[in-house]
Design a protein around this nucleic acid. Structure first.
Lengths: 107, 107
DNA sequence: CAGTGTGGTCGCAAATTTGCGACTTGTCAA
DNA sequence: TTGACAAGTCGCAAATTTGCGACCACACTG
């Protein structure tokens, strides 16, 4: 156990230092989890904004509620552009993907 | 054949009026083709910017050149977030997806 | 010409996602 | 409590994507 010298009020920051710092593989996994969660919530938000239940959106998209539920699960790793586009189309939107420079972990 | 009254210099616009106007299904297909093409070119551009050949990027990503080639094909319809993220990670980037209001076909 | 490097196509097995029904949980109201 | 509804979980077959080798076309260079 390393001596902790920097006082911290943020438990998350401690965790970050403990498990991720200097470990690119873990950082990639973190980034991936973050991206999946972000996608899931965007779908959920878009559906909520349209005032639809999962079942209603499912019908619009041409699938079932359990599928929508899966897409809105933060731990789901299988997002495909095809499905995202179907969701978007049903909600009168379109999907845009962007490649951005890697967000630098707070110094 | 409808009489064309509005003079046009843009063949693409004529095509658009002929085949897509008022046909939501076709418009969706168009949007999809557009999105696939855009994604393909973003990958290509990102790779070019990094100064890599398809084979080199493939090695970084952990796959083969033919796979990269396929991803850069404008007609490829199978883009997945998982693969896009692998590409991004190899090129020190991250992927962001956004749902945008449907672009209104030019009035 | 032969040799090499880059981009591209095709086919097929392996891995992954989608489709969907069955079932559980939680909430709200009669 | 019962009924109804929204959300969520699980398992499995079907569909789709990925992995990868073999092969073609081109351009360039010795």
């Amino acid at each position: 156990m390393p001596t902790i010298e920097t006082p911290t009020t943020d438990a998350l920051e401690i965790l970050h230092r403990e498990f991720y710092e200097g470990r690119p593989e873990r950082i990639a996994a973190l980034e991936e989890a973050r991206a999946n969660d972000a996608t899931a919530r965007k779908i959920q938000k878009l559906r909520a904004k349209a005032g639809l239940t999962q079942a209603q959106l499912a019908k619009l998209v041409g699938t079932t509620a359990s599928v929508i539920c899966r897409l809105e699960d933060a731990d789901y790793e299988g997002h495909s552009m095809a499905m995202l586009r179907r969701i978007a189309a049903a909600l009168n939107s379109r999907v845009e993907v962007r490649f951005l420079p890697l967000r630098r972990p707070a110094a």
